[in-house]
Structure formats: C-alpha cells, structure tokens
C-alpha cells in the first residue's frame, strides 16, 4: 500500500495561483484543490505576467530567466492566445529609481537581455527591454477551467468551506488539508492573520482600468516610483494599473499616456496589493504557522511558479533553495539581504 497522496489547497484567483496549482498536481502528483470563484474572462484582469521585470537582485532574474521559457511554453499549449512578445519600457523619475534602473540595465545586459537606454529627463532614466514574453490573463482565464479538469484539479468555489486554525492547519469542509497555499494578495488579505500580514508588508489601494482604443501605446510601460503599469492589448485596448489611495489613479495613468492619446475608461476594478516591507518577494511559511505564502513576485510570478511549486514540495535545491530560504516570511525586513526595488516601491 502506497502513502496517501498529499493534499494541497491553493487559494487565489490570479493566473499565478492557477498555474501553481497546476504544477503541484501535474508535476508533483499532489491532490490539489483550487479555492477560487469561477475564473472569468469578462472582468478587468489582474496585471500581466512578464518574462522580465526591472529588479536588482541577479539571482531573481536568473531564476526567472531559467524557468520562464519552459513554463510559458507549457501554458501556451493550454491558451495559445495568452502569450505574445512585446517590449517593456521602464521609467524612473527620481535619482534613487534612476540609479536602481541603471543597476538593472547592467544586470540585464549581463544576463543577455536587450536593454536600451531611451532619451529621458535630467533626473530620470528610461529603458526599453526588447522581446519580453507576456502572459495576458484574460485569454488564459478563458481556458483555465477546462485545463484544470484535464489535470485533475478540484475547483472549490465556496470559499467559506475553507477553515483555518491558528496554527495554519486548514480544513476544506470536513477534510483536513495537508498544506494550504495563499497564492495571491486577495487570498492573503482574506485568510491570513492581520498581524502576520503586517509583519510582511502593507496594503496599497490600486485601481485597474480597461481603456478604449486610441491610447497610442505599443510597449508595456512601467513607472518605477509609483508602479503605474500600462499594458496595451492586442485588440487595441489598454490595461492600466495605478495606486489609488489618494484618488489620483486616473491622473497617474494620464501622466503615463502619450500626449496625443485619445482614450477613455471602459471598465474599472479596485483591488488591494500587498507590498512587502523590503520590496523583495516573500515565499514560505511564517514562524508558527503552516500556511505557505507567496507575496511580491510581481510580474515574474509565472516565471517563478515552478520554483515555488518545487519549494512547496520540498524539492528545491541549489540556487532555488538558497533563493527561497533567504525570502522566508520570518526574515528581518530592516536591513534585509534580499531587499529589492519592488513594483511601486517608493520608500
């Protein structure tokens, strides 16, 4: 008689959560429950995932570069329309962020990325990263349910059926779950003890816009100081994401749009993002809890999903194990050895 199959519940409704659940089931033979509402291609989607992001820790970029091609090829089989190649333009408008971006530029060149400098203001720096692979959530979400049933994921739409004890031990209905993974910010805000949450990071109000055609952008466009992200879609529309705690989200998007842009808001979604205190990712279990967290992977989330899946299953080794080990939730956030210039990180 073999050992009983380990059960894992992945809570989260982003493409990363679904891909992580899929990897745990398909590659690691776990019995996986996805705790999320029905995936919908009709809403304003979460930000896209990219094969490259402006970061300053070479090991993160190296892991992403090593894992991105394979995972993206596999997802492309599920949802071919979800992937495309684009350029990424990154702007830094403060000396601090310009310096950070300069560091990224040289790291990127060392890793073989085509990173070019663009004309920009005196204090600022703008870069273009050529030939970035992008996963657009909407076409992926349209196929995810079919794919989930094919690889044996069990979908649990009733989120109330998940109960979590103080220790982090979880039950789904009346069944014990061996491991609970909170795979996106919404799931963390919903299920994690607020004290643990505060120890890791802080919540930021964000707004996602879908804008009509007429924006005039061709590249994915990211502003480092405040994390305003514009992602032009293939149908000519635009997805835009900006901080909205001060009610200035649309002004931030307007500031990122070309002068001649003639576009309007078509749909809006408000959400909260969990930003880590040191700007670096957090993966693993907090001290005294059995809940596995994954926070702050940013646009590299899909590229790093195989690393996280192996870490959950205890199979990470070498650089991966070291990378995950340094990024546990229990690390000291002051003087952190893995601090990074996180998405929208300003202080």
């Amino acid at each position: 008689m073999g050992e009983p199959q380990q059960t894992i519940a992945v809570a989260g409704s982003t493409p990363f959560a679904f891909v992580l659940a899929g990897l745990l089931a398909a590659d690691h033979g776990r019995k996986v429950f996805v705790i999320a509402g029905p995936p919908s291609p009709h809403g304003v989607p979460p930000p896209p995932s990219l094969s490259v992001a402006p970061l300053t820790r070479p090991e993160t970029l190296q892991l992403a570069a090593a894992n991105a091609p394979d995972i993206m090829r596999r997802i492309a089989k599920v949802a071919p329309a979800a992937f495309d190649r684009t350029d990424l333009t990154v702007h830094a408008t403060t000396p601090y962020h310009a310096t950070a971006l300069s560091h990224f530029r040289h790291l990127g060149a060392g890793l073989g990325l085509a990173v070019e400098r663009l004309p920009s203001s005196e204090d600022g720096l703008s870069l273009r990263v050529r030939d970035v692979t992008r996963l657009s959530p909407t076409p992926f979400l349209a196929h995810v349910r079919q794919w989930a049933s094919r690889i044996g994921l069990e979908w649990v739409e009733d989120r109330a059926s998940l109960s979590i004890r103080r220790s982090g031990a979880a039950r789904l209905g009346s069944d014990d779950i061996d491991q609970l993974v909170l795979a996106d910010d919404e799931a963390i805000f919903e299920h994690l003890d607020p004290n643990l949450c505060q120890a890791i990071g802080f919540g930021v109000a964000r707004t996602a816009f879908l804008a009509e055609r007429g924006h005039g952008l061709t590249d994915v466009d990211l502003r480092l100081p405040d994390g305003t992200l514009l992602s032009p879609c293939r149908d000519g529309t635009l997805l835009a994401y900006a901080d909205s705690g001060d009610g200035l989200a649309d002004a931030r998007v307007a500031a990122s749009l070309p002068e001649a842009a003639d576009t309007r808001q078509a749909a809006v979604r408000h959400y909260r993002q969990l930003r880590t205190h040191d700007g670096g990712p957090v993966v693993g279990m907090p001290k005294g809890s059995r809940i596995y967290l994954s926070v702050g992977l940013g646009m590299l989330d899909i590229a790093l999903a195989p690393v996280i899946a192996r870490h959950i299953c205890g199979l990470g080794h070498g650089l991966e194990a070291e990378w995950c080990g340094l990024r546990t939730p229990g690390r000291s956030m002051a003087g952190s050895l893995v601090a990074d210039i996180g998405d929208g990180e300003a202080a």
């Binding site: 300053t56 601090y96 310096t99 950070a100 560091h103 100081p225 002004a251 931030r252 309007r264 700007g279």
Partner: peptide, 24 residues
C-alpha cells in the same frame, strides 16, 4: 466613460539619498 484627466501628482519620494541603496 471619463477621459484620463491629467493633474498634479505628489512628488515621488527619493528615499535613502546618500546611503547605500537597500537593494544593494
């Protein structure tokens, strides 16, 4: 269906001026 309105944005803070950037 509003247009995106341009407006005054607060200046982005320039943290850690003169110190070793924390990402290093």
């Amino acid at each position: 269906p509003r247009a995106f309105r341009r407006g005054d944005l607060p200046a982005s803070p320039d943290p850690e001026a003169g110190q070793l950037p924390r990402y290093l």
